[in-house]
Amino acid sequence: MSDVTSESGSEQVKMLSLTEIRPNPYQPRKNFDRDKLLELSQSIVEHGVLQPIVVTPSIQGYYIVAGERRYRASEQAGLTHIPAIVREMTDHEMRELAIIENLQRENLNPVEEAESYQQLMEAHHMTQHAVAERLGKSRPYIANMLRLLKLPTSIRQLIREGTLSGGHGRTLLGLRDPKKMQQYADLAVRESWSVRYLEQRVAEAQPSSTTKTPSASTKKPQLIRQHEQQLSEKYGTSVDIATKRNKGRVTFTFHSEADYRRLIQLLKKQ
């Protein structure tokens, strides 16, 4: 490590040897676009590292807290040292900052974004409301993004790659049956369906989704379906409302113990 070279606000910027630095074990992002990494590497060769990375001391050197792309690109550029801000941080703080830094990337795909919200909730026992407040977003927005994690892995991968959008993914959830979701996802990709056209096709598929044709008296009224949709978006999970005469039930679906605790916390606030 070389001497202090400059200051950033009240924090000192040091030149650290790349051999002293290791990736953050809590980094939520596992895949880095090779072409964009090469582009950044070429920029570093020409202009240098314009923004210091953030690291925290470890037993053997330093862990990266924020700026792993700059670190990797600097390696590719052949640098031996990189400007860094050294902060003393707990594991809890390091994990949270890594997730938030990941969320601030402009090219984050919808599934990566949803996974980051889920990690914040599980690692720090945060509710959707708390995550929304922490990041300056609305709770329904967080809930809608988290719904993407209920999609089959193969469809989530299509969204990661940009082949399908987050809007396509949320629309496919209306089919409920994973096999049908995959069938319509494949059609949407092959025939370049817009989200609006996919919505129409999914709506058309609903009456034929059961083996028996329901009579007019057993079909759900439009108002009930609207209430299901409103509750689903509010609580970030699928909701079923069943009515018979003057009685009925409202069913919330949860997919893990953490999801169950989240729902209970939200319902207690009402």
Rank of each mutant, 00 (worst) to 15 (best):
Q76W: 08
P57R: 03
A205F: 02
I241T: 02
Q76L: 13
V45H: 13
T80L: 13
Q42K: 15
I21T: 07
M1K: 08
P52N: 07
S154I: 15
Q12H: 10
P28S: 12
E228M: 13
S2R: 13
E7Y: 09
P140C: 08
T153L: 12
V4P: 10
E191S: 09
A203E: 14
K244P: 00
T56P: 07
M121S: 05
E75A: 09
E112Y: 05
H47P: 00
L40W: 04
Y71N: 01
D259V: 00
R196S: 15
Y71K: 00
A188I: 10
P152F: 03
I155V: 15
S116P: 05
T213L: 15
W193E: 09
S2D: 15
L38F: 04
T56Y: 05
S215N: 09
E75R: 15
K244Y: 12
S208K: 11
A143C: 07
S238N: 08
L231T: 08
A203W: 06
T153R: 13
K219L: 12
E11I: 06
Q200Y: 14
Q229A: 12
N24T: 05
S232W: 00
T243H: 08
E115L: 10
R170C: 05
A258P: 03
T80H: 11
V111D: 07
R245S: 11
L158P: 01
P57Y: 07
E113V: 03
D91L: 02
Q27F: 03
V55L: 02
A84K: 04
I21Q: 02
G67N: 05
M145S: 15
Y117A: 01
K247C: 10
K14N: 10
Q222F: 08
S256K: 02
K36I: 06
G78K: 13
Q42H: 13
A130I: 04
A188W: 06
R147I: 00
K247Q: 15
I59Q: 12
R29V: 03
K137F: 09
A132G: 04
S232C: 01
S138K: 15
F32M: 04
Q206S: 08
S256Q: 01
A114Q: 03
E106F: 13
P140N: 11
K179I: 14
A205Q: 10
R160K: 14
Y260Q: 09
R196N: 14
L173T: 10
H92Q: 14
V189I: 12
K244I: 04
M15E: 13
R160D: 14
H129E: 15
N246P: 03
I82S: 10
V54A: 02
E228F: 06
E122Y: 08
S74Y: 01
F252S: 00
L120T: 01
R70Y: 04
R87S: 05
R87W: 02
V86F: 07
S10L: 14
K234Y: 10
